[in-house]
Amino acid sequence: MSTNLDKDALPQPGDAATDGPTPLLELRDLHVYYGAIEALKGVSLTVPHGQVVALLGANGAGKSTTLKAASGMLRPRTGDVLLRGERVDGIKSHELVRFGIGHVPEGRRVFARMTILENLKMGAYRLRRPDPTDLERVFTLFPVLAERRKQIAGTLSGGEQQMLAIGRALMGKPDLLLLDEPSMGLAPLIVQQIFEILREINEQGTTLLLVEQNASQALRLADYGYVLETGAVVMSDQADALLSDPRVRAAYLGEAVE
């Protein structure tokens, strides 16, 4: 866990919840419903500036719902979403992006009939004057996108589409990047590559809230982790502590180790 050592001096999510600097994102006791179904039953979590926070859990635990509540795609029935200490729940997603939130949705959802370049330009839609250095930055992070900028996104491989989805979100200059299962359905080598790039993005100053079923990969990248089960947080700790926790190992690593 050498990569986590240099971050030990930074404020940790656990401390931030009580006192210390205002976290970038804070979810307080979120209750989210789909009709009569209660998908989130009081989820609270904290994402401090500059860190990587992992949100783990089995299928249907409520991970995507949590991200959607954070980015304004869903409105919680009760509970608060705070961004830099300001309440933002109830603000629609197209307005919330101006607060510096980038959401890479589950299943990548690139604009399949647009080219790579058009997809990336869509990512910068919210900006009045797109910054050409953003495009350079994305192309530096993902050279494969630069080579094929005129290619229709629907014809890309799953890994390339995931890179495009991440690149597209970066074009909106987010301070906080929400990532919904970026490793889903990808070959181990590609997953490795994507996680290395995520680390680089974080080192360049973007805070990450990372939803994953691939718990070992996610925890090795993360500073802090939360485990979600049927709409509630059942465990939260430093990432390396979770990684060595026997309950986590039994429940999530037995099936997820590559």
């Binding site: 997603s93 197209h94 959802r109 399949a112 009939r113 839609y125 919210r126 597209r168 909106g172």
Partner: peptide
């Protein structure tokens, strides 16, 4: 193509 994702890009539908 995808209204939900479009609004995540800041498009006011």
């Amino acid at each position: 193509q995808d209204p939900e994702v479009a609004s995540l890009m800041g498009v006011d539908i």
